[in-house]
Design a protein around this nucleic acid. Structure first.
Lengths: 220, 220
DNA sequence: GCAATAGTGTCTTTCAGACACTATATC
DNA sequence: GATATAGTGTCTGAAAGACACTATTGC
């Protein structure tokens, strides 16, 4: 489940299936694990084949094993989710071989961290038909990402190298699906010591430019 | 990973391996998934075979798939963790067939939710030798349980039907590995609306008896 | 009465939300 | 100068920690 925040919205990479089963539906990228291959490496390899992306954040999500989830035979999927900054992903998609893939908006029909299936929509806002139990997997990824947001610096994985605090807040809001308090957000992020001011300002923004920051992982 | 809190300490059910590999080491209960069996059902079945326990809390934990984790062949384990009140487990162990199993103390060499392997010790406090990567699995279970503690009513799964707030706090402390503030703990639990006073008091305690409460899941 | 723990009241600290205000780019 | 957003200062309210105090059982 490759997620990103693009233009203030949470998006997911989907592939258009050309073969049965679930032909013409949209699916999360997937593949088989090599007999001597670690699970996370397999997830990275699958993504690498679709979009050439080294060094992205990958985390194991959940293992889906319902006997009926694939009509062909018993398939157990160790789902992972990955995060990548939108600018990096866009650049990668432009150089990738022309494949029937899309970066779809994620529509989450529940609030907070309650969980449940999620939908993907096209640019017009119409739901895409997802293959197999991929709506459940997508929902689980969003739930996990929302949970990580509070206690883990995952949001920085979605930022370019230098970013403004407003950009970071916008990513938080896209993920959590709720607005955040500007003052409190700034105070909290700055107090966390996880960002370092560069002293430089953004340019060409038509209003007072914000300072650019970099992510600096906390030492302990 | 069957965990419980017994006598104020976090404990785990371990089986003594009688056969190679890892002979004479201690292992978490495990087994193979049936070809048409859901994953969580398999976990429940395995536990049921060891200790007859209906209706216990089971949650998928993490899937361990390192190619070298079992010396015989590639084995991928979808680890689950389960919670059971100590009194229920003790009663069940007494009626179970005499098997080489133990309820070992869990020793967590890290603080908070940092994660990492955990150890199991005998009553004298000496570490037991754990089979395969089961120290990693145990550590992951403790990490997850500590994480659940704050935002999820899992601690009630470890309580008998009626319990005092002090017992509940003791379980929290055993799991988190850190003392809690009594006043704040009481306020928080009572304010959560997840416990219902019974009006009855504990008896034969040699000091002022505490009121007994029951768990009442929050409505929404 | 003594020991031990249950349970309550209050003060302080911390932190998030709300709001108002000043600052500084582009146009 | 207008506009829009960046960034700061201050008040308030919620919740946790600290501490002191009262309550109630068995012995």
């Amino acid at each position: 489940v490759l997620l990103t925040v693009d233009e203030g919205e949470l998006k997911v990479l989907l592939l258009h299936r050309q073969t049965e089963p679930a032909r013409n539906k949209w699916a999360l990228p997937g593949g088989f694990v090599g007999i001597d291959e670690p699970l996370e490496l397999a997830a990275r390899r699958v993504l690498e084949r679709k979009v050439h992306l080294p060094q992205l954040y990958v985390e194991q999500l959940f293992t889906f094993g319902d006997p009926a989830r694939d009509p062909r035979t018993r398939v157990i999927s160790v789902a992972h989710f990955a995060l990548v900054p939108a600018d990096v992903l866009r650049a990668s998609l432009n150089t990738a071989p022309p494949e029937p893939l899309t970066l779809a908006r994620v529509r989450v029909p529940w609030e907070g961290e309650r969980g449940g299936p999620a939908a993907a929509t096209d640019d017009a806002g119409h739901d895409l038909s997802l293959a197999f139990d991929h709506a459940d997997i997508l929902g689980m990824a969003v739930k996990r990402l929302r949970g990580r947001l509070r206690y883990s610096p995952v949001a920085f994985e979605l930022m370019p190298r230098e970013f403004t605090l407003r950009m970071l807040q916008s990513a938080y809001e896209a993920i959590s699906g709720a607005p955040h308090n500007k003052d409190a957000f700034r105070r909290r992020i700055l107090a966390s010591g996880e960002v370092k001011a560069t002293g430089r300002l953004e340019t060409d923004v038509g209003h007072r430019p914000a300072e650019l920051y970099r992510y600096r992982p906390a030492s302990p």
